[in-house]
C-alpha cells in the first residue's frame, strides 16, 4: 500500500513539466527515504535525478519499496488537471497495475480521482559517485535560463569556463559569436539574487545547449540554480526544491576528438 499526500501539489505539477520533454518513460521509486526517480534521455547524454523526501509529505505511507513505471507525458496530462492550490495524493495498492492521483481543492469542495495505467520499464540506473568539483556556481535560476535561451539563438553549443574573473558562457554560430560573463556578486538585497562562484581550479567544458534549455524548464521550482563543473565529468545542474529535496540534471560534455 502506497499513499503520499502532498499539500503543495503544484510542486509535483512543476516537476513533471520539468522532466516530461527530456524523458518519455521512467520508474518512480518509493521507499522510506522518499519518492525518487532516476532516468536518462533516449540518447544517454542527459540524466535526471529527482528526490522528494518523505518528511516533505503531509502523509507518507510506503509499506515496502515499490517501483512504478509511468509515461511522463501521460502523468503530466493528468497532473495538469489538478489546480495549482490543490492537495495531491498518490495511491497504489500492492501489485496493482494502476496509480491513482487524487486532487482536493483547498476548501475541500471539489475532489477528483484520476487513475493512470502503470507500465513495465527496464530501468537502467547509473551509480553516481560523490565527486569534488573544480568549480561550483550558484546563480539566480531565471538568469541562467535567460543566458541559455539567448545563446541558443546564436549557436548550438556552449562553452562554460570558470576562472577567477567569473563564469563565462560562450557560443558561436553562422551569424557570429557571443560571450556572457557573470561575476561573483554577493552584494544584493536578497540572497537568491546572488551569484556565488567557488573555484578550486579553473575549468572549461563544452555542452549541447538544447539540453540546458530543457533543464531550465525546472526554473519555476527554485529561485536559484547550482552548476557543478569538473573537467572530464558531466555537469550537474541542480534546482533545490524547498523543504523537499532536489531535481538534478547531469549532462555529458562534448569531447575533443
Amino acid at each position: 500500500m502506497l499513499e503520499l499526500r502532498l499539500v503543495q501539489g503544484s510542486l509535483l505539477k512543476k516537476v513533471l513539466e520539468a522532466v516530461k520533454d527530456l524523458v518519455n518513460d521512467a520508474n518512480f521509486d518509493c521507499s522510506a527515504t522518499g519518492f525518487s526517480l532516476q532516468a536518462m534521455d533516449s540518447s544517454h547524454v542527459a540524466l535526471v535525478a529527482l528526490l522528494l523526501r518523505s518528511e516533505g509529505f503531509e502523509h507518507y505511507r510506503c509499506d515496502r519499496n515499490i517501483s512504478m513505471g509511468m509515461n511522463l507525458g501521460n502523468m503530466a496530462k493528468m497532473l495538469k488537471c489538478a489546480g495549482n492550490d490543490d492537495i495531491i495524493t498518490l495511491k497504489a495498492d500492492d501489485g496493482s497495475d494502476v496509480v491513482t492521483f487524487m486532487f482536493e481543492s483547498p476548501t475541500q469542495d471539489k475532489i477528483a480521482d484520476f487513475e493512470m495505467k502503470l507500465m513495465d520499464i527496464d530501468s537502467e540506473h547509473l551509480g553516481i559517485p560523490e565527486a569534488e568539483y573544480h568549480a561550483i556556481v550558484r546563480m539566480p535560476s531565471s538568469e541562467f535560463a535567460r543566458i541559455c535561451k539567448d545563446l541558443s539563438s546564436i549557436g548550438d553549443t556552449v562553452v562554460i569556463s570558470v576562472t577567477k574573473e567569473g563564469v563565462k558562457f560562450s557560443t558561436r554560430g553562422d551569424i557570429g559569436t557571443a560571450n556572457i560573463v557573470c561575476r561573483q556578486n554577493t552584494t544584493v538585497d536578497k540572497p537568491e539574487e546572488a551569484t556565488v562562484i567557488e573555484m578550486n581550479e579553473p575549468v572549461s567544458l563544452t555542452f549541447a545547449l538544447r539540453y540546458f534549455n530543457s533543464f531550465t524548464k525546472a526554473t519555476p521550482l527554485s529561485n536559484t540554480v547550482t552548476l557543478s563543473l569538473s573537467s572530464e565529468l558531466p555537469v550537474v545542474v541542480e534546482y533545490k526544491i524547498a523543504e523537499m529535496g532536489y531535481i538534478r540534471f547531469y549532462l555529458a560534455p562534448k569531447i575533443e576528438d
Binding site: 565529468l233 555529458a252 562534448k254 576528438d257
Partner: peptide
C-alpha cells in the same frame, strides 16, 4: 572537432 560524450563513459551501471 568534438563529439558528444555519453553518460556511460563517466558513470557505471548501479
Amino acid at each position: 572537432k568534438s563529439s558528444q560524450g555519453r553518460l556511460e563513459s563517466f558513470f557505471k551501471p548501479a
